[in-house]
């Protein structure tokens, strides 16, 4: 009965490969997006397309505006200008929670686990459309929502098994290692069966031995058809996972393409890839 938690609901875009055939309809279109902080333009007129079924990389030096752009796309920061379209709908004015309900889920640069909830509870919080999650549902009591709860617990356990964290389900999330907290965030996002995953430096603060593991999971998700945008400093991982890669500097996009193409462009290499 329960759909696999890892199976993303198919987007309206046609089936996707990696770079073959006709360019698919973008899942998200970003046009001239700006974000100002106290007079400073952290994001300054960015226009990009995010193609379905791919992992798009977003790189650039510190302060380039990558994380800010991601926050604007996820709605956790409002845009100062420009438009963001998701699946053909203009979502520029939508608050973050509404975007999330439409399948755009972000993670955070700093660990954002619910420290005093257990690992399993962390995942259950993300469950969408749970009957017990409103005040009314809570007051109607356990019998009203227990069926939903069973379904979600099963889904959460499926995810925990897939990410090899079943043994930790009853531990407080705050007691986990940095890498495990990252995985919790990703699993939490997957509980919502997202169509677009926005990952803000998922490898930062993670033990090197786990980085490869996270990368493998991300590849698996991509091969399952999930669209991912990832802000990351680990260039090896970007090279392995991402196509296309977008390079930002000083709030602007200064190049995009595959990592191989980018390496050929002098100014990008100067700006970021070396030194």
């Amino acid at each position: 009965m329960s759909p696999s938690a890892l199976e993303p609901t198919a987007g309206s875009a046609p089936a996707t490969g990696t770079g073959l055939g006709v360019a698919p309809q973008p899942m998200m279109t970003v046009r001239n997006v700006e974000r100002h902080f106290e007079g400073m333009r952290a994001v300054d007129g960015v226009s990009i397309d995010i193609l379905p079924g791919r992992i798009t990389g977003l790189i650039g030096p510190n302060g380039a505006g990558k994380s800010t752009l991601l926050a604007v796309l996820a709605g956790t920061l409002p845009a100062s200008g420009g438009t963001v379209t998701f699946d053909g709908t203009d979502i520029t004015e939508w608050p973050a929670w509404r975007r999330a309900r439409h399948g755009m889920i972000r993670t955070f640069q700093l660990p954002s686990e619910f420290a005093e909830l257990t690992v399993l509870e962390n995942l259950l919080v993300a469950a969408p459309n749970h009957r017990g999650e409103s005040l009314r549902g809570a007051l109607l009591g356990r019998r009203y929502w227990i069926a939903d709860e069973r379904r979600e617990v099963a889904r959460a356990r499926e995810l925990l098994a897939r990410f090899s964290l079943s043994a930790k389900e009853s531990e407080y999330a705050g007691s986990l290692s940095g890498g495990q907290k990252r995985l919790i965030e990703i699993m939490r996002a997957l509980m919502l069966q997202p169509r677009l995953l926005l990952l803000d430096e998922p490898m930062s603060g993670v033990h090197p031995s786990i980085i490869g593991e996270i990368a493998r999971y991300l590849e698996g998700l991509r091969d399952g058809g999930l669209t991912i945008l990832i802000v990351e400093h680990e260039l090896h991982m970007i090279e392995r996972l991402c196509n296309p890669v977008i390079v930002m500097a000083q709030g602007k996009v200064i190049g995009q393409g595959s990592m191989i193409e980018l390496r050929r462009q002098r100014e990008i290499v100067d700006a970021y890839l070396v030194g």
Binding site: A74, T76, P95, A96, W97, R98, A100, R101, I105, R106, T107, F108, S112, E113, F114, A115, E116, L117, E121, N122, L124, V125, A126, A127, P128, H130, G132, E133, S134, L135, G137, A138, L139, G141, R142, W145, D148, E149, E185, R188, A189, L192
Partner: peptide, 29 residues
């Protein structure tokens, strides 16, 4: 007790721990 032991209460506790993360999971804080 009904509130605290319910999924609603669980989401409230999560909000206490990290409001922005709850928002990013589609809950209206």
């Amino acid at each position: 007790q009904r509130i605290v032991k319910s999924p609603y209460g669980r989401t409230l506790r999560a909000m206490r721990e990290h409001e922005l993360a709850v928002t990013a999971l589609g809950k209206n804080p």
